[in-house]
Design a protein around this nucleic acid. Structure first.
Lengths: 190, 190
DNA sequence: CAAAGATTGTGACTTTTGTCTCAGGTTGGT
DNA sequence: ACCAACCTGAGACAAAAGTCACAATCTTTG
């Protein structure tokens, strides 16, 4: 249990007591992934949260054969498909490793021992759900409120590591434009 | 306590027992609104959920003076600003009545008596939060995955009462296009 | 190190959407 | 019934983004 992991948890819920954090990881499993390996496949029901320890995850939707990137999750952040997890529905999106990565996998089998032994875990999962959804809402607002160029500038200001680590083509899909358009936006530099 | 109210609650959480539903409404207040009256103003901290009994609510964001519609909430549905409520942050959006309306206002003062007397209420609020966020995610996906014309067709199929009750100009703002463009999409009828 | 493959930048052209304008219709209040 | 405010549809033009093609550059791999 490093300081880093504590910081990751605190980012989700600052109110959680330090002494409860080890018990969260007690029920989580570490998992290594090769680039391109899939954590959640389209059609499967999602039952887990993922915390990225190293590398990053790419979440994408298959629109008539073309992938559309919805999210990139980097070190220290959580992701999942909450719609699938909450409603026990088949996932309409895929979560896969963008590079060789290491995860912490938090399984959500809340009926088991962890529930009895530590109600703080249940509370944490609920806060985690809201946290993940609010994060995804931020990306949504990019689309509702900004033009493509404004979206790029926003990412430039607020999430520059995304631009450093993801290829232009992948970012274009994430911003909802073609790669040519993104290339031009970037060229204008204004 | 009518059957209708029970159905509204069950839509959020099918697992809640019938006998707990009256206690939810015990702590809610009924409120009448004139068209245009504001429930949550930009800059205020949101502390409530709203259940629409009659009429509808319009949620909008002020972008450089122009309103952008983010949500319409009709009879039987809940809304709130969860980002503001969850983080005690000033709201960056406004919620107001689109016609003369009647609400049920659920105040979120969880430290009070309701907490002690009925932990089911707290559980319900957490589920409500996820419910509201997942609903807003659906609207977001319209933007991330579809073109303006596809968005309109989607609403036509999945939420036709919106088209019947909201003016073209307001819908255009909701779909992220000008009213002229929406008028053309509608004209093509294809 | 060289060849193959992927990624990016650029230009010409097309399609879509926005902007500006105006005319006709609807609604609500007096 | 009248007026004002708002809403809708349509046309002409401008701006933005997409499509297609190809060259230049970067990466990977044998």
């Amino acid at each position: 249990m490093t300081k880093e992991f504590q910081a990751y948890i605190k980012k989700v819920s600052a109110r959680i007591p330090d002494e409860d954090i080890p018990s969260l990881f007690k029920w989580a499993q570490s998992r290594d992934l090769k680039k391109g390996e899939v954590l959640l496949r389209e059609g499967e029901v999602c039952r887990e949260f993922y915390l990225v320890e190293k590398g990053y995850l790419r979440t994408w939707y298959n629109k008539d054969g073309d992938p559309i990137n919805l999210n990139f999750t980097f070190e220290g952040d959580f992701t999942t498909n909450l719609k699938s997890l909450n409603g026990r529905l088949p996932s309409d999106l895929t979560i896969e490793a963008g590079e060789d990565s290491r995860m912490w996998v938090f399984n959500l089998d809340l009926r088991r021992e962890k529930y009895e032994s530590n109600p703080e875990i249940v509370l944490f999962y609920r806060r985690l759900a809201v946290h993940v959804l609010l994060a995804s809402e931020e990306h949504s607002n990019l689309f509702k409120l900004y033009t493509p160029a404004e979206r790029y500038r926003y990412i430039e200001q607020n999430n520059p590591r995304l631009l450093q680590r993801i290829s232009l083509s992948q970012i274009a899909s994430y911003l909802g434009v073609t790669r040519e358009t993104l290339s031009r936006i970037r060229g204008k530099r204004q």
